[in-house]
Design a binder for these strands. Structure first.
Lengths: 343, 343
DNA sequence: GTGAAAGCGCTAACAC
DNA sequence: GTGTTAGCGCTTTCAC
C-alpha cells in the first residue's frame, strides 16, 4: 500500500512547463524580485496545473529556518499544561509555525536529552515548560544561538525570557482574604513543594501569614510526598488522618490547598467528620476546574488563564525569533481569586 | 540576544580535522561501509572535538525521510485524546521519531487544511485522530504516497489502517449487564451523537436492548445538543428537567451515560430528587475518570486503555512506514466494564 | 525582468 | 577501505 510514491513535481517541472528558469519561479513564489505580470501568470498557471507545492525541507536547508518550534513539557496529559500547549500551538500556527511536542515526564534527565534532541532536529526555537533545567545546558544552547523561552518557571541565573503566573503574590492575597474572614489557624495542603510553582505557593502562604500578623505554624503545613495516590484521594486521606490524630483545639480552622483536587478531597473528609464548611472550616483550592462549581459547598479557588499563558509564550517566542534586541522579557501573569461558598 | 549564531560544524569540518573526505565521515556515522578501525577512531575523535551533530534537515532532504510524524487531533486539552497523544509520542520517540501536533478543534474544514499543511511539511506519516475526514482528500493523500493511520474512527470507504475501541460491542454488553440486574427502562444520556464514537455507543445501546428482548423507547433517549455547558452541568440540568416534567411511572429505572461527567451530573440530580442509587435508579458512566471512584455512590463505568491505543496507533504507523505489504490493519480494542456501586 | 549558477549539508553510487 | 562526485529542491547573488 505504501511505496506508490508518485514523484512530486519540483520547481524544475514548473519552470519547464512555464518556459522560464527555476530562479524566476522562486521569485514569483516568494515575491522576491519584480516579475512581469505576464510571466507571473504563466508560472502561477504551471504551478496550479502541476499541483506544485514547495518542498519545505529543501527550503529549510537553504534558508536555515524550519518554521518548527519545539515544545518541551512535563506531561501532555496534565490539565494545567495541556491548555497552555494547546493555546501555544494555535498561536504559533497563525504565524505559520508548527509545533513539535515532546514530554519529559518530570524527569530532569529526560528533559536534558530531549532539549538536545530538539536542537538536533533543527527547530527554530524551544519552549521549555517548567523544567528543572540544567542551567549549564541552557547556557550552552543559548550560546549556540537557539532561541529558548521558559514558561512557568524562573531561571534567575540566566538571561532567558520567561512567562509565569504570580503564584507568590496570589497566594499571599488568598491568605489575606482568609484572614479577613476571620480564620486564624490556616493550614497549607500540598503535594511535594519541590515543584517550583508549588513551592512558590508555599512562599506566598507564608508571606500572607506574616503580612497579616500570623505566625507560620509547622503543625499546620501538610505536605504529602506520596506519589501513588491521585490528588483526590490524597487530600481525603491526608485530612482524614489529621482528623483522627489531632486534638480538636489543634486543628486548623481553614485549609488552603494548592490544587482543587486536593481541596475537594479535603472537603469530603471534613464533611464526613461532621464539620460545617465554611463555618467551622474554610477551604480554598487552586485552579478552578469544572468540579469546583459542582461540589457542595461550591469551592472557593484561584483561576489561572492558561490560554493567555500559551499566547504570551508564543508572543515572546516570536519576538525572540525576530531577534528583537533590548530587554529580555519577563512576563508575570496575574491569577484571579474566585470566591464561592467554601471560604 | 539572538543572532549570535555560531556557525555549526559540518561534515566538511570533521573531514578536514580527521584528514579524510566527507564520504568517509558519512560512512562511519551511518555504518554504511566498512571503515578501518583506525580511521573510524580518528573520525570519531574529530566529531567529538568539534561537537559535530549531523544536520537533520540536510539528511532529510537527501533521504526523503524526516523522522517526523504529524498527529492531527480534535483538541489537545481533551481527557480522552491527550493520553492517546501522549502515549503515541512516547512510543514514536523510542523509535527515533518526533511528533508534530496539530489540533483542528472539531472543525472539519480545519481538519482538511491541516492535513494538507502537514503533508506540505514533509512529515513521514500522518495520524488522524477521529476526524470527520473528507474521504476524497484522504484518498488523494494516500495516492500521493503519504502513509495515513486513522484512530478512533472507521473509514469504510477507504483502505486505510485504523485503531478504535469496540464501542458498539461494549455498550451492548453494558446494557446486557444492566438488564441482568433487573433494570427494564434503561435510558441513554449523551451529547450529540454526531461524533462517531458517541454514535457507536448509541448503536450499542440499541443493540443491547434488542438482544435482551427490550424495545428501544425514544422517550428514554436523552441527547443534548447543547454545546454551552460542560458535561457535568449538562447531565445535571438534563436529568433535573426530566424529573420535573415526567410522571414517575414514565421515568427510566436506569441511565447509561456516554460520559462519566454526564453520569455524575445525573447522579447528583437523582440524589437531590431523593432517589436511591442503585436501588431506585441505576447509573452507568463511561471512561473511568478519577472522580468515579470518589463520588457517592461510586460510579459503575467503562474503562478504555488510552495508553494502549496510542501504542497500537504507533505500531501500525511504524508498520505502514516500513511499507509492510499485505492486509491493511484494523485493530479493535476492547473496553472494560468496571462495576462499582451505582449499578 | 529574467537567466545562470553557486551552494545549503548531506547520502550513495561508483571509482580506485 | 577510502576518495570523488552527483545530486536532493530550493534561494539568492550576479549578470545581462
Amino acid at each position: 500500500m505504501a511505496g506508490k510514491k508518485v514523484k512530486k513535481p519540483t520547481m524544475v517541472d514548473v519552470a519547464a512547463k512555464a518556459g522560464v528558469t527555476i530562479g524566476t519561479v522562486s521569485h514569483v513564489i516568494n515575491k522576491t524580485a519584480p516579475i512581469s505580470d505576464e510571466t507571473t501568470e504563466r508560472v502561477l498557471k504551471a504551478i496550479k496545473a502541476l499541483d506544485y507545492k514547495p518542498n519545505s525541507i529543501a527550503r529549510a536547508l537553504r534558508t536555515k529556518k524550519s518554521y518548527v518550534i519545539g515544545f518541551l513539557l512535563p506531561d501532555v496529559t496534565n490539565d494545567f499544561y495541556s491548555p497552555v500547549l494547546s493555546s501555544f500551538i494555535d498561536s504559533a500556527h497563525q504565524d505559520g509555525y508548527t509545533v513539535l511536542v515532546v514530554s519529559y515526564q518530570y524527569s530532569s534527565k529526560r528533559e536534558e536529552i530531549e532539549m538536545e534532541r530538539l536542537a538536533d532536529k533543527n527547530v527554530d526555537g524551544i519552549l521549555l515548560f517548567n523544567g528543572c533545567g540544567d542551567v549549564a545546558l541552557l547556557r550552552r544552547m543559548q550560546a549556540e544561538g537557539i532561541p529558548i523561552v521558559i514558561a512557568d518557571r524562573r531561571v534567575d541565573e540566566l538571561e532567558l525570557p520567561t512567562v509565569e503566573f504570580d503564584n507568590v503574590e496570589t497566594c499571599s492575597k488568598v491568605i489575606g482574604m482568609m484572614c479577613k474572614k476571620g480564620y486564624k489557624r490556616i493550614g497549607f495542603l500540598s503535594e511535594s513543594t519541590r515543584l517550583r510553582n508549588l513551592n512558590d505557593r508555599y512562599e506566598g502562604y507564608k508571606k500572607g501569614l506574616v503580612e497579616n500578623g500570623l505566625q507560620v505554624n509547622p503543625e499546620l503545613v501538610y505536605i504529602s510526598e506520596d506519589m501513588e495516590m491521585n490528588n483526590l484521594e490524597k487530600g481525603y486521606a491526608y485530612i482524614k488522618r489529621i482528623l483522627e490524630n489531632t486534638e480538636r483545639e489543634n486543628l486548623p480552622d481553614a485549609i488552603f490547598a494548592t490544587t482543587d483536587l486536593l481541596a475537594i478531597g479535603a472537603v469530603r473528609a471534613f464533611k464526613e467528620a461532621g464539620f460545617r464548611i465554611p463555618e467551622e472550616i474554610g477551604v480554598v483550592g487552586f485552579d478552578n476546574i469544572a468540579f469546583t462549581d459542582f461540589i457542595e459547598p461550591k469551592l472557593t479557588t484561584v483561576e489561572q488563564d492558561k490560554v493567555l499563558m500559551g499566547r504570551i509564550a508564543w508572543d515572546i517566542m516570536k519576538a525572540t525569533l525576530a531577534g528583537e534586541e533590548g530587554e529580555v522579557k519577563h512576563v508575570i501573569l496575574p491569577q484571579k481569586i474566585i470566591i464561592r461558598e467554601s471560604c
